[in-house]
Design a protein around this nucleic acid. Structure first.
Lengths: 190, 190
DNA sequence: CTGATGTTAGTACCAACTACTAAATGAGGT
DNA sequence: ACCTCATTTAGTAGTTGGTACTAACATCAG
């Protein structure tokens, strides 16, 4: 028997549609070997919108993501800043940031938070990282809220020295010392 | 006169549609105060597909992006590896990786390439970054192909020392020394 | 005034639906 | 075997946002 019972079919339908939102009722009716009307009834019962609405939804969602991605110029959200002095940012560890195995955040995200905070705190048109000494003291896990604080120690001869400390619930998880290279507007070299 | 000439209108149309792909011909015809037919003719001449096709396109494009984002587990593509000894990876600098202003790659992408290479080269179930000293010698720019080489210097007492050098066309742009913490399977501690 | 260019109007048709009515088919329970 | 309720299928009318096509205006330039 190729056909499923109502319950089974509806469960599979949810799965099918959520993995591939581009399926028409016709294609679905072929897949489950039932009539189009049955599929429509199922969608009605399950509150699954029609193809076009599903696509529209995906498209909208994703255009939003693009916006937030280009905002993600800075990793983490800056919550306090006094230019050339100090800055604070918050970074929440999400699914994309962790090793699946153990839910520990990849080191380079903590680094990225610190690094982009350093770029942000310097009030000059160009600021590039020159060097860094960093330490990962404790792993950050999925869901953790990491607060990073950057303090500019000195700025001299186009080089700024910045120390960064990142904490989760007051506990130090990361620290680093960054040297940033910066220049004013007209200036440029290699 | 609220109405535009054909040329102007068509240019604006392209802009409108590309910034908001969700506009129907009807809405557009209202915006430009012309008939729907005129809009349709314009789209025909400009090869702009209809609303539904535009949305579908956006949706598809973005579902692809999600896939490639989750693939971005490792930054850069590993091109050679001998576990616990050395590894090589290639990272091509793309639009998302650079400052828009000057097309220079954000430092944390170079770091991420090096860091994930260090994670990859260690043949143990768990490998976390403990510390790093890094130097950014020359900026990497949009389109650059960065080859990163990690060499394991020693592995002792759950700590591995690894040196990384990243080059663009034989020229050193980044180097670093990483300390990685690792453990075998059953083991675990905070 | 005449043509070319541009703009509108209108028709037939399409995909992928919704909303609704009605008939056919099960599958169970007694 | 018969009745019943759930399920499935069929079919119609109407919707949105179009394509494709024909035909009738407008407008302006030479």
């Amino acid at each position: 028997m190729a056909k499923y019972k109502k319950r089974e079919r509806q469960e599979l339908l949810i799965e099918k549609v959520s993995t591939d939102p581009f399926l028409t009722d016709e294609r679905l009716s072929e897949m489950f070997e039932v009539s189009i009307q049955t599929i429509r009834l199922d969608r009605l019962e399950l509150n699954i919108p029609e193809l076009r609405e599903r696509i529209k939804h995906v498209a909208r969602e994703e255009t939003d993501k693009i916006r937030s991605l280009s905002l993600q110029e800075v990793v983490g959200e800056i919550i306090d800043i006094e230019l050339n002095h100090h800055a604070l940012s918050l970074f929440i560890v999400e699914e994309g940031h962790v090793f699946r195995k153990n839910q520990i955040a990849r080191g380079h995200y903590l680094f990225a938070q610190a690094n982009s905070l350093c770029v942000a705190v310097i009030d000059e048109p160009l600021a590039l990282t020159k060097s860094a000494q960093i330490e990962f003291i404790k792993p950050a896990k999925l869901g953790d809220k990491v607060i990073s604080k950057a303090v500019v120690e000195k700025m001299e001869g186009r080089i700024a020295a910045i120390t960064v400390e990142s904490k989760i619930e007051q506990r130090l998880v990361f620290k680093g010392r960054f040297e940033m290279y910066y220049t004013g507007e007209g200036e440029k070299n290699g």
